[in-house]
Design a protein around this nucleic acid. Structure first.
Lengths: 152, 152
DNA sequence: GAGCTATACTTGATTACGCAAGCAATCATA
DNA sequence: TATGATTGCTTGCGTAATCAAGTATAGCTC
């Protein structure tokens, strides 16, 4: 079954754009705030969550990391004091990740510059209706079956 | 400077879609052909290149890896016999990576199933004109300044 | 030529992830 | 209520990528 014309081009551009954008965004974020893109992604998910807290497993799913990936990523954020662990009263298996005061502050600071970077490198390339269409098209792509949340 | 509405959504979907798609494609490619996505990417670049050969540095740039990344990736492909080194007559600094006979075969086999996977998970989500528009939109995004080629 | 600087490539150390395996708590069923 | 299956989380290990540093060649300028 041959690929329909255009698919290969679109896919390659998708791959390359991702590599280039994440490299640049990551390096800026790292330089200014000492956060990786994944760190920031996790912080933002927590920031928008009810009570700024989430079960670690849900956090993992929402950013498309594995359980072990989240453990290690949060290790880092915890030792920086940006995130804290909290036990769940009703189920001793689960642990919550909670944004600390410092975490909220860091998140707000980083968000400002990071969003400006995203706007510069990504958003500004498109007219408003193009951006919406792009979001719509990308929204049709399959997420991992383990993922659900894609709030923004 | 606040992000214009839609940018954040589009960007997050872009990130998530990439994570989910590459994970799935990579695992299929690995299972059937014992190749990573990067391996395949490199093989395809060579496959389409003049004489099925490229300077290692150009190869690196075209797939958005660093020079050291390419060295190690090609190490693997060389020890599998899919790619060979070739010296450059006119410049002793450069080495070519050449697809071997086995490499060509492998590439053609892998391409078949991989393209079907891409079509299933990516291309088939869009109507022909949507695919073109998606490619066009993605094509506006900045590539790394070290990249040039984006043939397909 | 002699000496700079830039380019192509490799290597060692580090990092960020995934997978597989394990533990502990919970749930479900008999 | 005992037992087996599932779920949340962590840990050990392997891999793929990065950066920094080192080697060798090329080319430029005096």
């Amino acid at each position: 079954m041959p690929v329909r014309p255009g698919t290969e081009t679109a896919w390659l551009r998708f791959l390359r754009a991702h590599a280039a954008l994440t490299r640049e965004l990551s390096s800026r974020l790292e330089a200014v705030h000492e956060l990786t893109l994944s760190d920031f992604d996790v912080l933002i998910q927590l920031y928008y969550a009810e009570g700024r807290r989430m079960r670690r497993i849900d956090l993992a799913r929402s950013v498309l990391l594995t359980a072990s990936g989240i453990t290690r990523l949060l290790d880092g954020l915890e030792s920086c004091g940006l995130v804290a662990k909290e036990r769940c009263a009703s189920d001793a298996r689960v642990t919550y990740a909670v944004l600390t005061k410092a975490g909220v502050k860091k998140c707000e600071e980083a968000r400002e510059s990071h969003n400006a970077d995203i706007e510069e490198l990504f958003g500004s390339r498109f007219a408003p209706e193009e951006r919406e269409q792009l979001a719509e098209l990308l929204g049709r792509l399959p997420l991992s079956h383990t993922a659900e949340a894609c709030s923004a």
